[in-house]
Design a protein around this nucleic acid. Structure first.
Lengths: 172, 172
DNA sequence: CGCCGGATTGATCAGTTTCAAGGCATGTGG
DNA sequence: CCACATGCCTTGAAACTGATCAATCCGGCG
């Protein structure tokens, strides 16, 4: 089990022919890799220079054994990850490209305190593989949302949200 | 928390305009609804006449409190649901229509003991909403897999797998 | 026998992907 | 300090997969 201290991490699955699906991005403060099985179900890579704290499985299991609260905390965190995954199923199965992008921007904004201003640590390709799109479609989406006055880009990575309500309604 | 005794259950999310994503089908013996939060994240409906066993939250929590093994079991089951959801993310984000259908058939076959012969309890629309497709595409997929000698249909719901290896390779 | 809901099949359409070209920022070496 | 290579991003045009619209089929049931 890992905790992101700084930077950002992506977890993903890759098919033999190279198609990739990113399960989730983890930002500072978040935990990942709670699978509890013999093997992790996704692989994880740093998206940028990152500092990661590692908890040994034995530590965790021991703590869960002694401490009811800790065990409950583990379950809670796993349930939260499940909820995120289930929300993402709806996004991947049923939303349009623009809706996916809007939902992504709102998600990023939330994890930055809803201030409507943040830096994307990941590339267009990473975003595409998270949203089940191609990097070109993601790029076109950014352009379109700018044209719609929903956001501004300062360089490719620095985002300023101009119409949070619109994005929220679209991404919902 | 619920356990399917007989029949089948689907859990799903619906958008205001009617688009629906089914998270998973639950067959006899399987548990669902372990979210642990104040509210379930998906709604659940029976796909066919079903018998469901209900565990009250208080029961569960009490059991987890007393019994370390039970608490661990809950976590384990949640982690397993998470793994299923993560696998499904790859399917929805990156696989073609035929690959999705193949993966679905293999999944159904597995939960029927890999005997290559089973009854689908759900409609084409349910399958479509599970796989992020339209019911027409699902129907065409079935026809195509029959043309490829990968399976036989006896009526719309009764499936006989003729080439499990092929389907497995395609769905992987 | 005829109705009805679900399933199949056909024709066309649209959104996204693919293929391709060009832009922009950064860094390196002359 | 400039020329040029590199990586990432944007934009455009064409192609394709799956969606939509529509007709027909099939099986069960009154």
């Amino acid at each position: 089990i890992y905790k992101v201290i700084s930077g950002a991490v992506r977890t993903s699955k890759i098919m033999r022919d190279g198609r990739r699906q990113i399960g989730r991005f983890y930002l500072p403060g978040e935990f990942f890799g709670l699978e509890l099985g013999k093997q992790h179900n996704l692989s994880a890579e740093a998206v940028a220079d990152s500092k990661i704290f590692l908890f040994k499985r034995r530590q965790i299991e021991a703590m869960a054994q002694r401490n009811m609260e800790a065990a409950r905390e583990m379950w809670l965190m796993t349930a939260d990850h499940l909820r995120h995954a289930e929300d993402h199923l709806l996004l991947l199965g049923r939303k349009t490209a623009l809706e996916r992008l809007a939902a992504f921007l709102i998600e990023m904004d939330m994890s930055h305190g809803n201030c409507g201003l943040f830096e994307l640590p990941m590339s267009r390709r990473d975003i595409a593989d998270y949203l089940g799109l191609t990097l070109e479609t993601v790029s076109r989406g950014f352009s379109e949302l700018q044209k719609k006055q929903a956001l501004e880009l300062d360089g490719a990575r620095h985002v300023v949200l101009r119409n949070r309500a619109f994005l929220g309604a679209m991404g919902a």
